[in-house]
Amino acid sequence: LRSMKTNITHNNCTSAQEVDMPYCEGSCNTYTMYSKAAAAMQHSCSCCKETRLSNHTVDLVCPNGDSYSYTYMYVEECGCTNTECIAAAGQHIRRKRSFTLL
């Protein structure tokens, strides 16, 4: 769990003061290894993400002087969670082509 202070802006209205907005950052146990038993590669992927959230409310002030309450998601806790391993963007899977001669 990392801490960050920032102003919240929504519909051209902004928080009068910076608010605490925690976020998740870190590395988790992710690997790829060959399995002799399966005769294939085995993948284990996990990512750092929020595990507990709460709603926080802040007052936003608009250019015309109006103000209203705005609720945002506040990260309380982070952890490593399993995820599906997929090919990275831009990587192509090689496929066997077949041709029919006439």
Rank of each mutant, 00 (worst) to 15 (best):
M21E: 00
C45M: 05
K5M: 07
I93T: 03
R2D: 02
F99P: 00
L101K: 07
S46V: 06
R94P: 00
Y74D: 00
S27G: 15
H10M: 13
Y70S: 03
H10F: 15
L101H: 08
Q17R: 14
T51P: 00
Q17D: 05
I8G: 01
Y74W: 08
M33S: 13
T83M: 10
C48P: 00
A88L: 12
T100H: 15
C13Y: 14
D59G: 09
S27N: 12
E77V: 01
D20L: 11
M4I: 05
E84T: 03
T30Y: 10
C62A: 06
N29M: 06
P22L: 15
N29W: 05
N29F: 09
M41N: 12
V58F: 14
C62I: 01
I86R: 15
N11M: 12
A16E: 04
D59F: 10
Y74N: 02
E25A: 04
A37K: 09
C62M: 15
G79F: 10
C80F: 02
G90T: 07
S46K: 14
S35F: 10
L102V: 01
R52C: 06
F99S: 11
T57Q: 12
R95T: 03
A38N: 06
T51K: 15
N7G: 10
M73G: 04
G79K: 05
P22T: 02
L1C: 01
R94S: 11
P63K: 08
E77A: 14
Y34C: 13
H56E: 01
C80V: 02
S54Y: 09
C62N: 04
T14V: 10
T9F: 11
L53G: 05
N7W: 13
S69V: 08
C47I: 05
I93K: 07
H92L: 14
L60F: 15
R52L: 15
E84A: 04
M73D: 06
F99H: 13
T57A: 15
C48N: 00
Y74I: 01
F99E: 00
G65H: 07
M4S: 06
R52T: 03
V61R: 07
I8S: 02
S15A: 11
N55H: 11
H43F: 08
A89W: 11
S44C: 07
T81M: 06
H92V: 03
G65W: 06
K36R: 13
A38G: 07
C80N: 02
Q91L: 11
P22H: 03
I86F: 09
N64C: 04
Y31W: 06
L1Q: 01
I86E: 12
T81E: 02
P22D: 05
S44Y: 10
T71K: 15
C78T: 03
S44R: 09
N29L: 09
S15H: 12
L101E: 00
A39D: 14
C13Q: 13
K5F: 13
Y34I: 14
C24N: 00
T83Q: 14
H10S: 11
R97A: 08
M73Y: 08
A38Q: 12
T6K: 15
T30G: 01
T32C: 08
V75M: 01
F99L: 12
C24A: 04
M21T: 02
H92Y: 08
C62S: 05
L1K: 03
H56N: 00
C85S: 07
